[in-house]
Structures are given as C-alpha cells and as structure tokens.
C-alpha cells in the first residue's frame, strides 16, 4: 500500500491492529478542569447537544497532528468548540471574547 493509500484507509482514531510500543501502565489523577470537561461532555450528551459518537468524530476531525500532540481532554474541549461552531450554537468570536474575559478574571484573582 502506498503512503497515501494508508492515509485513505485509516482515519486518525482507527489504530486497532497497528504496530505500537510496549504498554506502559501510566495513569494520573484528573486535574480539576479535566474533570469538569468530562462532566461537561456527559451533560452535553444528556441534552443531546453532542453525543458520544459526535464527540469521537469531532476528535478525529482534529486531524492526526492535533490528535497526536494534544492531551486527551485538550482534544475533547477543542472538539466540543468546533462541533458547537458547526451546529451554530457558538461562534468563534463569541468563544474568543469569552476566553479573554475568563483569562482576565483569573488574572485579577
């Protein structure tokens, strides 16, 4: 199979059966924002705003480079933002302004 054929045949999440490194039994306690992000995912699913499969697809749509470089919950929150933009629930400008507000608020603390 050529390099491009391989790309066509496998989306970034579809790694079952590929060669990979030995298992390292790593784990970590979730940071507070990661736990909030998980709870947000569940609540979005409860309200049928973003279901589990849409979330997984949204992560995949980030592309191989972002999937490889962002951590697990970083991928989730970025995917949520993109999905919410696509659904017309949020706009990029709205989110950018809100992030500025949140950041300046935390600087005041």
């Amino acid at each position: 199979m050529t390099e491009t054929e391989k790309l066509v045949n496998r989306l970034p999440n579809d790694i079952g059966g590929l060669p990979a490194d030995p298992i390292q039994r790593v784990d970590h306690e979730l940071e507070p924002w990661e736990k909030r992000c998980h709870a947000l995912a569940d609540v979005l699913d409860f309200h049928k705003i973003i279901n589990t499969e849409e979330k997984r697809c949204g992560v995949e749509a980030l592309g191989a480079e972002m999937v490889g470089k962002l951590s697990y919950y970083e991928r989730w929150i970025v995917a949520f933002a993109n999905i919410l933009f696509r659904k017309g629930i949020l706009t990029p400008t709205e989110l950018a302004l809100k992030m500025k507000e949140v950041e300046s608020r935390s600087n005041e603390d």
């Binding site: 970034p12 490194d21 390292q24 790593v26 784990d27 970590h28 940071e31 924002w33 909030r36 992000c37 947000l40 979005l44 705003i49 191989a64 480079e65 999937v67 490889g68 951590s71 697990y72 919950y73 970083e74 929150i77 970025v78 949520f80 933002a81 919410l84 629930i89 949020l90 709205e94 989110l95 809100k98 992030m99 507000e101 949140v102 950041e103 935390s106 600087n107």
Partner: peptide
Amino acid sequence: DHDHAHPHAEISEGRPGYYDIMETAVRELL
C-alpha cells in the same frame, strides 16, 4: 503520534492554562 498520557504542563502560579480557560468559556456560554 504516540497517544501516551501526556505529562501535564506545569501549572505556574496556579493560573489556568489555555484549555482550562477554553473549558470554562464554553461551559459559561452554554
């Protein structure tokens, strides 16, 4: 593209990071 557990970026002076801020912003907007 190793998807191992990323050691999380050091938190300096307890300020929230970019993704932490994004989570708060998305949640508050919703």
